[in-house]
């Protein structure tokens, strides 16, 4: 083995990754070459320095206030937008973005425009936020939304041949995201039944699911 060959294999040698025969050759070369022994020594020193570095370093100042300020601002914004938590907003955004991406790739612009339907009015949103939902009312609201969602799903199934397969895959995937969000909100309500914010979130998530389904059904009708 030459010095150059050893240099190329030095990483594998110190990492113990050389095969037995190559390792024996490297060892034999190192026994007779002081230059390569020095290279090996330096590399092992560098690795020892790296291993000695602590994995945790305390920031020189408290960074939390800046984080809390930004997060708090976003939370206020999302509440003003309809009581959605960041992750619920993200789920809804995924649905819309996914639909537009799929449609945009294979459909004329006019088809994309048909996806848009008017959102709930600001007054309706505010009204929804101001409602104090007790358990029986919440249960009734859930039933109504579920019935609406089921009716729309049935309509979508009848028309699924009119939609592109990619669109259906995207819709299904994102409905699963919303359903998971619903399940999580329900779990949170079970732990804390009196939390009005959670009740509003549950209703808002149901509303979003119905909205998404309405958009897709309307799209299949328009195509």
């Amino acid at each position: 083995m030459t010095c150059r060959e050893l240099d190329e294999r030095l990483d594998a040698w110190v990492d113990g990754e050389l095969a037995a025969a190559a390792a024996a050759e490297a060892e034999a070369h190192l026994a007779t070459c002081s230059l390569c022994r020095e290279r090996e020594r330096r590399l092992r020193q560098v690795l020892a320095h790296a291993a000695a570095l602590p994995r945790s370093v305390t920031p020189p100042r408290d960074l939390w206030p800046g984080i809390a300020q930004r997060v708090g601002r976003e939370r206020s914004w999302s509440r003003a937008a309809g009581g959605w938590s960041p992750w619920a907003l993200a789920a809804a955004a995924t649905v819309v973005v996914g639909l537009v991406a799929v449609l945009g790739s294979g459909r004329a612009p006019s088809a994309v425009r048909t996806v848009e339907i008017p959102a709930a009015s600001p007054e309706a949103r505010l009204a929804a936020l101001s409602v104090v939902v007790s358990d029986p009312v919440l249960a009734a609201a859930e039933r109504e939304y579920e019935e609406a969602a089921n009716a729309l799903l049935e309509a979508l199934q009848k028309r699924q041949s009119e939609l592109q397969p990619e669109t259906l895959v995207t819709v299904r995937a994102n409905l699963e995201v919303i359903d998971r969000a619903l399940a999580e909100v329900r779990q949170a309500i079970a732990r804390n039944p009196s939390n009005l914010e959670l009740n509003r979130m549950l209703v808002a998530t149901h509303r979003k699911k119905v909205d998404v389904l309405r958009r897709v059904v309307k799209l299949s009708t328009a195509l």
Partner: peptide, 27 residues
């Protein structure tokens, strides 16, 4: 779960638990 439900105090706990490792890696 609490942080996912909007609990900022819970998220701060998660931050305090992880800030030093995250800062070291960023550094």
């Amino acid at each position: 779960q609490d942080a996912q439900n909007g609990d900022l105090l819970a998220f701060e706990r998660l931050y305090r638990e992880n800030e030093r490792k995250v800062f070291a890696l960023c550094l």
